[in-house]
Simulated scan of single mutants.
Amino acid sequence: MKAAGAVLWREADGDVEIAVVHRLRYDDWSLPKGKLDRGETIPACAVREVFEETGYSCVLGRHLRQVSYDVRGVPKTVDYYAAEAVSGDFAVSEEVDELRWLPIAEASELLTYEPDRDVLAEFARLPADLLLVLLVRHAKAGKRSEWDDDDDLRPLSDAGWRQAEALRALLPLWTPTRVHTAPRVRCADTVRGVATDLSVEMVEEPRLSEEGYWPDPEAGLVRLLEVASDEGRAVVSSQGGVIPSVVQSLAEMGGLRLSEVPCKKGSVWVLAFTRPFGTWSTSDSPSRWPTLVSAHYLASALPRP
């Protein structure tokens, strides 16, 4: 059984408040969460459950952790995200009869279950407002050996277009405002729908293509950090020969341990970075650059059957 939820937060007088809900059926205080519907992704479930239990629309941030336990002998996992409340108002429902906005320490004391307190502690470990890059590997494009034209022009396959449409539905849950792409037809077409929906032009990133990255990997890493630092969140579409190196290198620079860096076609790495103090440049010490503090892998944007 799979479920998803969130630490729903908002700014309050320069600090952060957390939404804690009281569930009438269980007479407990918990973080908003619930089971996946058929045909739903885990991130979409988190957003929906937050709205149904709190009345607030939200924007997803970093993945916090997955909690596992048994429900009447059936294994259950719950994936939790940080989520910023952007609009809405609480109303009593059959499931939730009270919501309280509380400082983190008070919210932790009120929560009934230890796993919820652990999730909240993970949220509190880092700033709530982080820079975010959604690093996408292009969707399926058939076999290179079966394409006779310039490989830069190799198009998405039918399966690839399905993946692209799924990404078009998934990525807006993090409310990106910019779309960047390696200069490949298959990379651009993977995120073209997202750019269309945002009414923005895609920005080509030669440094994040395979032949542009490997002659100078450091320049490619710096370019991704520059993209992360710009105003608003970004989608970046790249290739399988680039993404694992970028993610692993940034993780090592930030002291973040990753046991592996998978990179399936149509997958997404949700990368969260600290905000640098003031402006930064490549001439500064790397300690002043944005630092990768969270990297969560989504193997597929396609919903569960």
Rank of each mutant, 00 (worst) to 15 (best):
K2Y: 01
K2L: 10
A3T: 01
I18G: 06
V21F: 07
L24Q: 15
L24E: 15
L24P: 00
K33Q: 13
D37S: 15
G39D: 10
E40H: 09
T41A: 08
I42E: 12
I42S: 05
I42D: 10
E52C: 11
T54C: 03
G55I: 01
Y56V: 07
Y56D: 07
C58N: 05
C58K: 01
G61A: 03
H63L: 01
R65M: 15
R65C: 10
V67F: 03
S68W: 11
D70F: 07
P75S: 06
T77S: 15
D79G: 02
D79F: 04
Y80P: 09
A83Q: 05
V86Y: 02
E98S: 12
I104V: 13
I104R: 11
A105C: 04
A107F: 02
E109V: 12
L111K: 07
T112V: 12
R117I: 07
D118V: 12
E122Q: 14
D129E: 11
L135N: 01
H138Q: 10
H138K: 11
A139K: 04
R144T: 12
R144G: 06
S145Q: 13
D149E: 14
P155A: 09
L156C: 02
D158G: 09
D158P: 10
A159C: 00
G160S: 10
Q163R: 03
E165S: 05
E165A: 00
L167G: 08
A169G: 06
A169P: 04
L170T: 01
W174H: 08
P176D: 02
T177C: 00
R178L: 02
H180W: 15
P183M: 01
P183K: 01
P183Y: 02
R186S: 09
R186W: 08
C187S: 15
D189M: 13
T190H: 12
V191G: 08
E201T: 13
P206E: 05
E210K: 13
E210Y: 09
W214M: 08
G220M: 11
L221M: 06
V222H: 12
L224S: 06
L225K: 05
A228M: 06
A228V: 01
S229D: 14
S229F: 03
S229C: 11
A234F: 09
V236M: 05
V236C: 05
S237F: 06
V246F: 03
M253R: 15
G254T: 12
L258W: 08
K265C: 07
S267H: 12
W269A: 03
V270L: 02
V270A: 08
A272Y: 00
F273A: 04
R275T: 11
R275W: 00
P276K: 04
F277K: 15
S283C: 03
S285K: 05
P290T: 02
P290Q: 05
V293E: 03
S294C: 03
H296I: 03
L298D: 00
L298W: 06
L302E: 12
P305N: 13
